[in-house]
Amino acid sequence: MFGLHYRLERKAIGLVLGIMLVASIGGIVEIAPLFTIHQTVEDVPDMRVYTPLEVAGRNIYIREGCYACHSQMIRTLRDEVERYGPYSLAVESKYDHPMLWGSKRTGPDLARIGGKYSDEWHVAHLMDPRAVVPESVMPSYGWLARSDLRTDNLGRHLKALRTVGVPYTDEMIASASADAYGQTAPDTNFAAGVAKRYGEATNIRPFGATPNGGLTEMDALVAYLQILGRLTDAAHRPVGG
């Protein structure tokens, strides 16, 4: 064996090929089957896609690095289920490009934060976390309420997401910018279009921040936080049900 190596280490290309071969095996065995074994991701008929406003909010969550301190993955442990809710299923992040499971909880898990607090609570908390939770160490995100949300390129966002596998229709892509506004304007034709395309269960309301002005990044982020864990009810159903 060492004799063989004695010869191998005289050949640069041999070493490179050897390294590539030896280093490939682990990834091929562990990753490739995740795409082919059907049970890896549960089949759930009621799984919805993010609306354009929620996609925009998710991108703000990514941009500000929220995932560095908040996980979105409730583990199959009793204390986690009692603290945060039913453990996370693979299907719940099926349309998450990329996933935001996180690796650290400087703050609590957010996988099921949607609907747990009011929009007003979220806005107040993001403006100044310590006004709501005095012991919090979270940064303030006041500038989000001062920043207009960019919606003109949301169609391109949805299109790219469709390329990587999220089932957005041509209609959804064409009306992405209007739908972002419509989701915050109940009782308008725009809102009706959102409900028609994304389902009646979609949250359609102003999300608090700026009732009269245009859309802000705060609105989008709150819209995203309020949908977390609510794209499907699969995790709340009994196993096998």
Binding site: V41, D96, G165
Partner: peptide
């Protein structure tokens, strides 16, 4: 801006690989 080719569980495994 770009969107990762992988999502969810496959993306998580690729990322930690």
């Amino acid at each position: 801006k770009s969107y990762s080719l992988f999502s969810g569980v496959q993306d998580a495994m690729t990322e930690w690989w």
